[in-house]
Design a protein around this nucleic acid. Sequence first.
DNA 1: AAGGGATGAGACATCACTGTCTCATTTGGT
DNA 2: ACCAAATGAGACAGTGATGTCTCATCCCTT
Lengths: 183, 183
Amino acid sequence: MSVDREELLSQAAELLTRRPTSSMDEIARAAGVSRATLHRHFAGREALVRALEQLGLRRLEAALEAARPEEGDAADAVRRMVAEARPLAGFLAFLVTENQLFEPGELHEGWNRIDARIGAVFQRGQEDGTFRLDLTPAWLVEALYSLVATSAWAVQDGKIASRDAVRMTTELLLGGALRRAEA
Amino acid sequence: MSVDREELLSQAAELLTRRPTSSMDEIARAAGVSRATLHRHFAGREALVRALEQLGLRRLEAALEAARPEEGDAADAVRRMVAEARPLAGFLAFLVTENQLFEPGELHEGWNRIDARIGAVFQRGQEDGTFRLDLTPAWLVEALYSLVATSAWAVQDGKIASRDAVRMTTELLLGGALRRAEA
DNA sequence: AAGGGATGAGACATCACTGTCTCATTTGGT
DNA sequence: ACCAAATGAGACAGTGATGTCTCATCCCTT
């Protein structure tokens, strides 16, 4: 009888990832629910987006947890993070664009925690000599997000093969486009 | 008396770069023009966006021309392209998101030409041994766009310093995060 | 079987944006 | 200075989405 709220959010996320401008009615139908019920669970579009943001946060935290960023070689940790985060790319991209349009100054504690945890991996790599020092961890974090999202779009647009996405993302992020001297 | 159509488009671009959902009324006011006049020059929002797309195309083509991508070392050509394209990042990002929401299948000849020209730089670099072969030119083109746009956002959000933006973008794109063996 | 809570369908007013129109005013050219 | 073209201000109807409400129906619980 009761609607599975979590499942409803997942369906909404799945739709909005593809069509960010979907109306509440389209979202409701995509979730197999009437518009009235959708409103009973989420007061309005804003409330829905906020709930989706929390869902995205939980998912990304789970992905980050699965990647075990504190373990082993920093470069391998980056590889695991990219691989785990990639399925979330489209959804997270939606949340980014959606939230940036609302309050530009509002800080999001949850995202900052994740940023810090990813940034710590790069910093660890810098301290043990794995990563170069002239690229700040903050920039590398942004670049990681950016490249992961871009690889997802590129696959969707047929510009790169799906099976190459994770490899080319991590290789570019870690090794860059230049040919290594020591091959 | 007459409105400077080019200047109007520039103002519209400047506003929409910051607030992509701005209404026609807001756009008109930002351009210092009445809503009626805006409609006299552009039949509707779609016509305006198309004109903006052509403007973005011209600007990017001019930037690419200024970068002289066919000259000299391929890596230097990439550096010049990043430096020239950076001021356009926000505007182009708006156009990308705007057009992806409309016709997903519609091809854009102008963008393909630019993609091809940038891709040719990476291919040239691969052929002369400057760039690695396991990252496709198409992916490197996407990564270039992505990182340029990200660096612009990161500067705007205060996550990286403005003067570091171009350097960190090119360095990551070309050299990656790993420390080079041959220092 | 009965009752209660939740849902689906739809009506309803509201709101913001859009596109079009009119008319007065300003501007630029001659 | 004059005329024509262009602009600004505002009115207007149409549209689509939103949020709220009602009522019938369904399903689970007891």
